[in-house]
Design a protein around this nucleic acid. Structure first.
Lengths: 191, 191, 191, 191
DNA sequence: TATGAATGAGTCTTCATTCAT
DNA sequence: TATGAATGAAGACTCATTCAT
């Protein structure tokens, strides 16, 4: 039955606002404490570093997203193995993509921080990791295809390009003011 | 007929290296001066701010690129006005795109700074401006098309998406290790 | 019949380890609490200050040693007063010295803390006090001697020197890795 | 023709005073700047670290002393090699010892800092190095002796003891309020 | 043109200590 | 007995910028 918001929560809220406004590097812990109406020491009671504080906002959604991507990609591989692409399966997987988008919108702020405000922090290259994961997946997919249909191997650059494009598309939803509904339409149209 | 490299040049060279390595915010003017073997005062004789120094590396190529884009887009509009799209014109315009790519590779470092190392500076959102310009152009184009062929107006979001995608494509050439040749092939293929 | 080690004991053990490793100033109470798996508040329930905690480790052995020195020196004075130095008495006193060494080894850690890790605390000059006490004693001894044998008064500096040397010798046993046995041999040889 | 004392000098003077009063760790750079009537930035213009500042006071005398010790010991070895210890040589070497004392008194403050106020800095164990050097020298000396006179090898512990005692003696001159004259008398008497 | 000394606000972080519960 | 949240001053150090010469 607590009435007043906990200090940690106040800090997280203030941190989110400040990071969002100024970016990781340009944000000072002081300004966060001030906004949260809390002393420096209090901040350091709850968080180890500046980076830890940023991570506390952003880590979990990030990891969950990795997981969802993995699931999504494994789903696609299942479809591939079954040989025959039936409508139902396809749909199922498409739903996985949907789910990812929905999840990203659920943690819209957090992903915006990751994608546009993490410069200077450990997370500044997280996009590259998304691309990397996707590219690895595409490689498997592409090789299977080229083997099946006896076509030439797709070169790395092209693959990377597709992977990056893919991630770029999803990023756009967050970095620009796209609504969840618009995003879902896009997904349905393009995939 | 100067023999020794001028101080200003040494500073610019050092600045480019440091910014490239650490990014705008994380680079200290001190480190630049040190690398250039020049004193702080000297730096401030030639440049007003940190931002001015960064701008001295990056401003001109950036403006020139804006110009080239304008030209490119005006060219497309000319084609549009003439009503009949003749082969020759089209080629001409395609060559404009080529020229842009070539120009970007000529100032490869500078554009890399702009696209990936300008965080914290006045230029951190330059990509958005590219997109904006492109989008405005697309709007004109699209409206002309939809009027001509009596099709529905293309919504802003889609247009923005196309514009961003366009810019993204060009950015990729610079931010990733794409060679000029590969880039030109891509351009020829996709446009 | 307590089974679990008491909180206070855990704190003392942890404190000893930490102080020994890093010295008084460089050791933080936090690190002690962490090592003892105890909260800050608990520490402050049992101890008033950082210095109080350090004192709790070190005070008693220190005082006891002062006492032993006093005893030792009083013994020597007794011998002096009796005029005739009999073998038995001498031995007795030598045994007092022995006892001191043995006592120091019994609280080896504590004296090591006092002699090498107390910098920044109230105890940082404890060696000087040992020297002071010894010097006072030597003064009495020396004056009696010089009166008895009609020799010149020994000057303060020399006396201080002897006192300091004496204490230095005992310190060495603790600060360097001398075994109790070696120390006792040394004592027997030199005194 | 400067009239006002330079900033660097003011800083060094203030630093010496503060370190002398409170010791390395307990002294804050702020307090030094305040005493020197100089800003923090100024300090960091002249010195890299807190340790660098301390070193600027203390490094040179320390190194010079190492050198003098080396010379002194090499002198003793020369005497040894010549086989016959002639009075003149011995005197010469004794003069080397004298010179060391005189040098130490010349930089009395600096050596006091090193011997009693360097705790927490890189120099906190400098005494041990003195002892080490001396011990190594003694080893050579002792082995030569024991070979020459066919006596048993002196064990490491005893040697270390002598070395430490030696250094202790010299330290005393500085750490206690011994005058240069007293010290020189001591040296003449004991060596 | 350039020097280099100096500024001073600002950075993250640590710490002994307190106190309501 | 003990918790653990909170304080707030202080720490070393960095930086863009200025200015007399």
């Amino acid at each position: 039955m607590k009435e007043e918001t906990g200090t940690k929560e106040k800090l997280l809220v203030a941190a989110k606002e400040e990071f969002m406004e100024k970016g990781y590097t340009a944000t000072s812990l002081r300004s966060i404490c001030k906004k949260a109406d809390v002393t420096t020491g209090a901040l350091y009671f709850f968080f180890q570093h500046k980076e830890d504080l940023f991570g506390s906002l952003v880590q979990k959604p990030l990891e969950k997203l990795y997981e969802l991507m993995k699931l999504h990609y494994e789903g696609e591989l299942q479809v591939l193995k079954q040989g025959i692409v039936e409508k139902g399966d396809y749909t199922e997987n498409s739903e996985a993509a949907n789910f990812i988008v929905i999840y990203m919108f659920q943690y819209h702020d957090e992903f915006k921080l990751l994608l546009t405000k993490s410069d200077g922090s450990r997370y500044e290259n997280c996009i590259d990791e998304f691309v990397e994961i996707t590219q690895v997946h595409y490689r498997i997919l592409a090789d299977a295809m080229s083997k099946k249909y006896q076509v030439e191997r797709i070169d790395d650059y092209t693959l990377h390009w597709f992977a990056h494009l893919q991630i770029f598309t999803f990023s756009q939803f967050i970095t620009h003011n796209v609504t969840k509904e618009e995003a879902l339409v896009q997904i349905k149209t393009n995939f």
